[in-house]
């Protein structure tokens, strides 16, 4: 584990100007199973890898519906995610109550980012241990945002968070320019390809461990009456998408480079790794 001088609370900077508690909270996100998000001109999708603690346990929920036009995928502490998603639902309903309009996605994400920031600055608090991928649709089109417990939020064409998300990112970086013009089916296939990169060696994507969240017009393969609002596909309905995946090498279009581990800064004097 880490052994640091300046990590006992989050209101004290280290001499290098870092807040260790905040950085540890980012590690909590990396402990969670991976989630991938990407968007086209018309759609935004999130894909999540669900974990189960064993044969006897069910798979843990990775996605939450916030409103008709917003959904999230989480990586990290589920309990923190529940608190934050509840807050997002409140914000969404508040917007409908006061302005009769669906809350703009960027404001919703900023709202939780501001909330998370408070936890990085006030004494006696701890940062959230969860990161989100947020997809949403408003009158400026479909959106994908990443929220992280350090209190930041950024918009992306494609993004991944969670365990081994770097491998998914490598895939996304290779292909993101094509996403804009993809139809829903192709977009999901790209997402599945990226999500597959995060799997351990002997594992594969199945209808049980994969969740797909969608915003945008329904694909022909979806159930009738699905509408355009946020929906989560799980189980049997996603088998068609899984079967449409290309073999790994073909999908990559190039020999997959071994994912480089995020190198620790050389001048990292006050952080030491121990067994």
């Amino acid at each position: 584990m880490f052994r640091n001088t300046y990590d006992s609370d989050n209101t004290v900077f280290s001499p290098q100007g870092r807040l260790h508690q905040v950085e540890y909270s980012l590690e909590a996100v990396k402990q969670g199973s991976a989630a991938v998000g990407l968007r086209s001109k018309t759609h935004a999708v999130i894909l999540g890898l669900k974990r189960s603690t064993g044969e006897l346990a069910s798979y843990q929920q990775k996605m939450y519906r916030i409103d008709d036009h917003v959904g999230i995928a989480i990586a990290g502490l589920t309990s923190d995610a529940r608190v934050l998603s509840n807050f997002m639902r409140q914000q969404a309903m508040g917007s409908k109550m006061v302005f009769n309009r669906p809350v703009p996605v960027n404001r919703l994400v900023s709202a939780i980012a501001d909330k998370a920031q408070v936890n990085t600055q006030e004494y006696g608090r701890r940062p959230y241990g969860v990161g989100f991928l947020v997809i949403g649709h408003d009158h400026t089109g479909p959106h994908l945002y990443e929220f992280s417990p350090s209190g930041t939020s950024f918009e992306y064409y494609a993004m991944s968070i969670g365990a081994r998300s770097q491998s998914a990112k490598t895939y996304l970086e290779k292909h993101y320019e094509k996403f804009v013009d993809c139809d829903l089916t192709d977009l999901i296939r790209h997402g599945l390809h990226a999500l597959r990169e995060t799997l351990q060696q002997d594992k594969e994507l199945t209808i049980n461990n994969t969740s797909i969240g969608i915003i945008g017009p329904a694909a022909s393969s979806e159930a009738p009456g699905s509408g355009e609002s946020f929906r989560i596909l799980e189980g049997e309905p996603i088998s068609g998408f899984l079967q449409s995946m290309l073999p790994k090498e073909e999908a990559m279009g190039f020999a997959p480079a071994p994912a480089a581990p995020a190198a620790a800064p050389a001048s990292d004097q006050d952080v030491q790794m121990s067994e």
């Binding site: 109550m97 006061v98 302005f99 009769n100 309009r101 703009p104 960027n106 404001r107 408003d138 009158h139 400026t140």
Partner: peptide, 19 residues
Amino acid sequence: TAADGHSLGPVEIHEYLSR
């Protein structure tokens, strides 16, 4: 402050005033 392209129209103003 927000300046993000989501401006309030008459529908939103009316709802706000009603509340």
